[in-house]
Amino acid sequence: MSMPFGYVPAEQQMRDKADYARKGIARGRSSVVLQYEHGILFVAHNASRALHKISEIYDRIGFAAVGRYNEFEALRLGGIRYADINGYTYDRGDVTARGLANLYAQNLGMIFTDSIKPYEVELVVAEVGETSDADQLYRLTFDGSVTDEHGAVALGGQVDAVAGRLKEHYREGLSLAEALRVGVTALTEPDGERPPTSQLEVAVLDRNRPHRKFLRLTGARLERLLAEGTPAAPEAAEAPEAQERQAEPPAQAAPPPAPGPDVPPTAPEGDIDTGSGG
């Protein structure tokens, strides 16, 4: 049997699409999402003050995205509608990050297989719980894969390098100022300058807030937190932390997201995402 003219094997097609999406995402700046003692912190390197990369979705749910603005904005608005309509139909407590992550996964997966052009986006959907154990972090990639994350997640441009720095400094139960420092450090290249405050988009899901947990940190408040998180004598502050980290690993059985080829499980080269979170 002869091949039809212009035939491209499915495998090749998927690989091309994945490469295309990855290249698009790699052009952008990175963001990080990490748990701290009272909730979840979002930090994005964003040169635009008008177009947000971080947003509130619902009472307990936040959203962070990197990649093409018009694409993740359509997803963000859809997510807000999904949450509002479910909260209105049932009860506000019935809106979950899990449901939202599923909606995104379905749509991203469908676009990846059906459309000529995949979405060049990477998302994190986060839900703050009553305690830090109940916090949920879902990371979604352009092909609709979902990974259930703990601790800290990096997404965007130089994701491997950022995730590496994040893993190096992150530990459980950080204060807000410390977590912010870890996040900003992760977004800063080793010998580079820290992104100016005006280019940092920072928000929290603070479990201690009433009603809506999402809060943007801007202006003087952000400056204060950044100053607070920068210790006067970095060596002195780092040393006990390093010892703690060395002492802790047996207790912290679940490893933070490892950078490198095994995470995230992206089709077609990666593992098949079974959705079981494994």
Partner: peptide, 12 residues
């Protein structure tokens, strides 16, 4: 709907 999306929750 926005390009590629199928779910009408994304209707703008």
């Amino acid at each position: 709907l926005p390009a590629g999306l199928r779910d009408s929750i994304f209707l703008d």
